[in-house]
Design a protein around this nucleic acid. Structure first.
Lengths: 145, 145
DNA sequence: ATTAATGTATCAATGTTCTAATACAATAAT
DNA sequence: ATTATTGTATTAGAACATTGATACATTAAT
């Protein structure tokens, strides 16, 4: 059945960005998972289908899928297609922690180069937190679905 | 008095890690800033001094320094040396607060784009603080003659 | 002015990443 | 069984990253 569009997620590539094609694909898949456009069990565009749509080589799509499969995000089945894995949530947490560590270290370094201490930064972010709390109040940080 | 070690921060390189030398240097400088072993105005090892100590080419050290200078972390002065940027001296309290706000907002925005909530970030930075506070490390950075 | 210290620039050698051409293999549909 | 659809593997070449040899430029000290 070929009812759906090949690229129903509207993936796009920016050749001028300097970011490798396969990484752009990975990022957009991650985003789609993060904002709920892709859920456990969903099928992704086929390697060839997406390759045609993006006008790149199927291998480049396959590489993006392969890397996400190694991370446990996707599951590829020859003959059937590529799907969002069910166990993605746990492995995603590890990736999330790594990314947060990286972002935080970079930020602290930069702030420290301006002479701000870690305590000072944390205190300020506490104030920041209070400011934004009067706006929206639907942050459940520590539980997962 | 010229007896201070060239590599008083005890930088090391791991050739087997797969991480480029210049990136290892950057990371160790960032860490030293984050945990307070390096502060505004401090001089870093000279390009040649550190290169000799690490047994690599001066260009590799220079590249690490250069990248940190582009990011505003370091300041290199030909003939004098390389120093941790000391922007805070020129700043009054208002400017200082404005910069911290700017840095913080940028960081939070970026982290939020990865799906991290403000609470999550603050919690993580709290852990970071605890880690670096137990900082009576095994460093005898002073000369021991 | 000279020298010694510092960072900077240029270029080449080597290794790695990225993408594509092409062929192969497994599964589903018929 | 045959065919269409799917992912997979191999290889090659271009682009980029990494490091080092070497020479240059600026500043501080004398």
């Amino acid at each position: 059945m070929e009812t759906e569009s090949k690229n129903f997620l509207a993936f796009t590539l920016d050749p001028k960005s300097g970011v490798p094609f396969y990484k752009q694909i990975i990022l957009q898949i991650e985003m789609a998972i993060a904002d709920g456009r892709l859920n456990c069990g969903d099928q992704l565009p086929t390697v060839r289908g997406l390759a045609v749509d993006l006008q790149i080589n199927p291998n480049t799509v396959a590489r993006a899928y392969s890397e996400l499969e190694i991370r446990g995000i996707l599951l590829s089945q020859q003959g059937s297609g590529t799907f969002i894995s069910d166990k993605k949530i746990k492995l995603n947490e590890i990736e999330r922690e790594r990314i947060l560590a990286e972002l935080t270290r970079t930020f602290i370094t930069k702030a420290a180069s301006y002479g701000f201490t870690l305590n000072e930064i944390i205190n300020y972010m506490g104030e920041f937190e209070n400011e934004t709390e009067k706006g929206d109040k639907e942050n459940d940080t520590n539980d997962k679905k």
